[in-house]
């Protein structure tokens, strides 16, 4: 068997982070192939249930990324999202899920390089903590 590879769910907003990922791709930047991307209209659309469902169905980590504060295509979607994540993250840690399992970032459409860096870092963080066991159905 080959070495374990983390499987990471990346939920990216359509206007910034997804475009950033696109730029990383067309610029032929190297980043770990561990992320599976789901495109959503806005980080404000991210329901914490999506993140938990990701963990439950076997992803080792979840990365959520949206536009930088102030750059939201819908003016304030990411501000509302930020409050939501601000509560979700400590709550998950409170129940005992590893802090690095779920991560958030802001990546603009021009930051292809940053996207590659973020994915590299998240992949490394999750590789360090190992396969997800908590909140995973059937684990």
């Amino acid at each position: 068997m080959s070495e374990w590879q983390p499987k990471i769910l990346a939920i990216l907003c359509n206007w910034c982070s997804y475009a950033g990922a696109d730029l990383a791709g067309v610029s032929r930047m190297q980043y770990p192939p561990n992320v599976r991307v789901v495109r959503i209209p806005c980080s404000g659309r991210v329901d914490p249930l999506m993140i938990l469902k990701g963990l439950q169905s076997g992803f080792d980590g979840v990365l959520v990324s949206g536009c930088h504060p102030g750059d939201c295509h819908y003016i304030s979607g990411n501000f509302v999202a930020r409050r939501r994540f601000a509560v979700l993250k400590p709550l998950l840690e409170f129940v005992g899920v590893e802090p690095d399992r779920v991560q958030f970032s802001w990546i603009s459409a021009g930051e292809g390089e940053r996207f590659a860096q973020v994915v590299t870092k998240v992949t490394e963080d999750i590789r360090k903590i190992g396969p997800a066991k908590r909140l995973v159905k059937g684990a």
Partner: peptide, 8 residues
Amino acid sequence: DENQDFIM
């Protein structure tokens, strides 16, 4: 200008 220390 809220605290966003939990964001990378």
